Simulated scan of single mutants.
Amino acid sequence: MTDSALDVTLRPRRSVLYMPGANERALEKAKTIPADALILDLEDAVAPDAKPAARERVCAAASSGEYGLREVTIRVNGLDTQWHADDVRAAAAAGPAAVVVPKIGSASDVHAVEKALEAGGAPDHTKIWAMVETPDAFFRAQEIASASERLNVLVMGTNDLAKELHAEHVPGRAPLLTGLGLALLAARAAGKVILDGVYNDVKNLEGFEAECVQGRQMGFDGKTLIHPGQVDPCNAVFAPTEAQVEESRAILAAWDEALAEGKGVATVNGRMIENLHVENAKRIIAVSEAIAQLG
């Protein structure tokens, strides 16, 4: 199945794994990891003197076509760094699914990245994923999310947010919920995808799964990850369950029957069903079918 066979508006992004761009073995291993998307990293994971070589390696990987249906993106260095312009120029030529840009703080930052991609000849399919990481950016999340049609994903930078807030990393993430909630509202208002931040304790799978469940319940589309061992549990949590799919099909069947009888409401398992439930049922089924296409 080709990449174009997926409906890009419903592309699963349950698990989005960071891979260090300076590590050739990691880039090779990523071809076999069942993550929905990959972020080939030129920023935090790469030492300053290794950045030029990593840039060449990552761009070659992103344009290789060897990652199957995985969505391959490149995280460039920030706008205020000496490497940013060269990163974006090279990424534009490579044509990945997206360029992930750290510390986006305003619509003007988005516009700057967009202009640089266009100047570099980036294809239309190369989108912008904006990382929202600072208090100011969270307050401006709606401005950022609606700044460009090329921007289609917001990525939460929860480690940097915690640092800026002087907050502790605690179960339940109470110190971060205000910011995350603002970003969720902004993403949904602008019709964009939103990804939860990383979970740092890679050995604590119980805590990781609990945070995945929290993220799904809040409304995130998926989660960014820092270890391959997090991929499978993340995929499971962010996928609709069989029970949810079966209930959704029952809702659509009952709704169709009600419409045929000239009614504006239906009942499923004793619950009143209205149009909003129907729209949610359609979304659940569509997401489940899109995941099934990944194999």
Score class of each variant (00 low, 15 high):
Gly207Asp: 09
Lys127Tyr: 09
Val155Thr: 07
Lys203Gly: 11
Asp44Arg: 08
Lys163Ile: 13
Val198Ala: 13
Gly172Lys: 05
Thr73Val: 01
Asp86Tyr: 10
Ser106Leu: 09
Val170Arg: 11
Lys51Val: 13
Leu38Cys: 01
His169Gly: 02
Tyr199Thr: 01
Val101Met: 11
Asp41Phe: 02
Glu143Leu: 08
Trp83Phe: 15
Ala112Pro: 07
Glu246Ile: 14
Lys103Pro: 01
Leu165Asp: 04
Val193Gly: 05
Glu149Thr: 09
Gln293Cys: 06
Arg25Pro: 01
Leu40Met: 11
Thr178Asn: 12
Ala60Val: 12
Gly157Gln: 00
Asn200Ala: 13
Asp44Ile: 12
Arg271Leu: 08
Ala189His: 10
Arg13Gln: 12
Leu180Met: 15
Ala50Asp: 14
Met156Trp: 05
Ala254Ser: 12
His166Lys: 15
Asn23Arg: 08
Ala98Gln: 00
Lys115Asp: 12
Ala93His: 01
Gly270Tyr: 08
Asn235Lys: 00
Ala47Thr: 15
His169Val: 13
Gly191Trp: 06
Asp49Ala: 15
Gly222Asp: 03
Gly197Asp: 08
Leu165Gln: 09
Lys103Asp: 03
Asn275Thr: 14
Ala94Pro: 05
Val278Arg: 03
Ile39Trp: 00
Ile144Lys: 04
Ser15Lys: 02
Glu242Lys: 14
Ala250Val: 02
Ala22Ile: 00
Ala253Gln: 12
Leu205Arg: 07
Pro171Trp: 10
Ile74Arg: 02
Lys192Ala: 08
Ala93Asp: 04
Arg70Met: 05
Ala145Thr: 10
Ala260Phe: 12
Ala45Cys: 13
Gly222Gln: 00
Ile39Lys: 00
Arg89Val: 08
Arg173Ile: 00
